[in-house]
Simulated assay, not measured.
Amino acid sequence: MKYQKLKKAIVLLADGTIFHGKAVGREGSAVGEVCFNTGMTGYQEIFTDPSYFGQLCVTTNAHIGNYGVTKNDVESDSIKIAGLICKNFSYDYSRDIATGSLEDFLNENNLLAISDVDTRALVSYIRDNGAMNAVMSTDVDNIEGLKTLLADTPDMNGLELASKVSTKEPYFIGDENASIKIAALDIGIKKSILINFAKRDAYIKVYPYNASFEEMSSWNPDGYFLSNGPGDPEPLMEAQELAKEIISRNLPLFGICLGHQIIALANGITTYKMHNGHRGINHPVKNLVTGKGEITSQNHGFAISREEAEAHSDIEITHIHLNDNTVAGIKMKSKNVFSVQYHPEASPGPNDANYLFDQFIENIKSK
């Protein structure tokens, strides 16, 4: 247990609003778009999810760190959030399979974290006023300097971040003797997605964010996958061109989250930045094909235009988010292509949407 006096810290929002807290460990400053996740568990998966790159994550659950960390709960090779803002930080932990404390994990990744923040008030403020850039800092007496730092931080709208988190070189996952080969574009891919493919007798080759169709098709895959990831989808022109090539050849294609948005853009459907975004593990989605409801894990700040999707002659909306009626899934009527805005690998989260991986495998087998 930590008994020493913790250093004061603040969260300064782009509109000048300040929230006070205390530094968990290291001192310094961190900038990014402030967002919140409503999950009760899964903080390690959240912090290592590449989709969070460039964001200051506010956890609405009151206690963070209480079950420590384990190497099996990471979604990438390092922490991807820009900073952590929480209410109560647990320096002690109790979990049989834990391999260390969250404090040590944050320090190993050189991540700034602030506790003792009124996260209820902060989240309520963001919900009312929308996601915005912020700076969190222990330099509490240098407000003007922090404002300058914040002013130099680019807005998430129009920001390309996939190149910051994508693999530099192709790599393989799974059994090379598997019956199915999937070429995956890494624009911020989560480890759990690859595990789900491998469990279904697939051998996956993961390519960098800017891979061309010629590069990926030369491996002669049976299907193509566009991953989740951070930032605005519109600047990812290479990924959009890749999707257009795959679609034009009617090859099996599946997209999740950012990949879903890329498929929409490849079909001429625009995307937009949401007021807050969806981040949590209990988001209700309706499958319009089956009529069933699904509880889903979600993490996105952009969405596709529902009006344009409904007006598109070759697009069918397959899923909607029941909280705000945004598009949660689409498929092409004339092509072997579908995508969802949420996370069927659900790490963390429920398993209601696991069937989507099976659906992709069936699409490949029936091509």
Rank of each mutant, 00 (worst) to 15 (best):
M1F: 13
L6F: 00
K8H: 13
A9D: 08
L13N: 06
A14E: 15
G16S: 11
G16P: 12
G21P: 10
V24L: 06
E27L: 15
G28T: 11
A30Q: 09
V31W: 00
E33S: 12
C35R: 01
N37H: 07
G39M: 14
Y43L: 09
Q44V: 15
F47M: 15
T48E: 04
P50W: 01
S51M: 04
Y52H: 11
F53T: 12
L56E: 05
L56I: 15
C57A: 14
V58H: 02
H63I: 13
N66E: 15
Y67E: 11
Y67I: 15
V69I: 15
T70R: 11
K71V: 08
N72Q: 13
S76C: 10
S78H: 14
I81T: 14
L84Y: 11
N88T: 15
F89N: 07
S94E: 11
R95C: 02
D96P: 01
A98R: 08
T99G: 15
F105V: 06
F105P: 10
E108G: 00
N110W: 00
D118N: 15
L122S: 08
S124I: 00
G130D: 09
T138W: 07
T138H: 05
V140M: 03
V140F: 07
G145K: 11
L146W: 05
K147V: 10
T148D: 10
L149T: 13
T153F: 08
T153L: 05
N157Y: 13
G158M: 10
L159D: 04
E169S: 13
P170H: 04
F172H: 13
G174N: 12
D175H: 10
N177K: 14
N177G: 10
K181Y: 01
K191C: 05
S192R: 05
N196P: 00
K199A: 12
K199C: 11
A202F: 05
K205H: 07
K205P: 06
P208F: 04
Y209L: 01
N210H: 13
S212R: 04
E214P: 05
S217V: 11
S218H: 06
W219Y: 13
N220W: 00
N220F: 03
N220I: 03
F225I: 08
N228G: 12
P230E: 01
G231F: 08
P233S: 02
P235I: 12
M237I: 15
E241F: 08
A243G: 05
I246A: 02
N250G: 03
G255M: 03
C257Y: 01
C257R: 01
T270I: 02
K273I: 12
H275C: 09
G277W: 01
G277L: 06
R279G: 10
G280I: 13
I281C: 05
N282H: 14
P284Y: 07
K286P: 00
V289K: 12
K292R: 14
K292N: 14
E294W: 14
I295S: 10
S297N: 11
H300G: 13
E308P: 09
A309Q: 09
E310S: 10
E310R: 09
I315C: 05
I315R: 06
I317R: 08
T318Q: 06
I320L: 14
L322Y: 00
D324F: 01
G329E: 07
G329N: 08
G329D: 10
I330A: 06
K331L: 03
M332P: 00
N336P: 00
F338C: 06
E345L: 11
E345Q: 12
G349R: 04
G349T: 10
N354A: 06
Q359F: 03
Q359V: 03
I364D: 00
I364W: 01
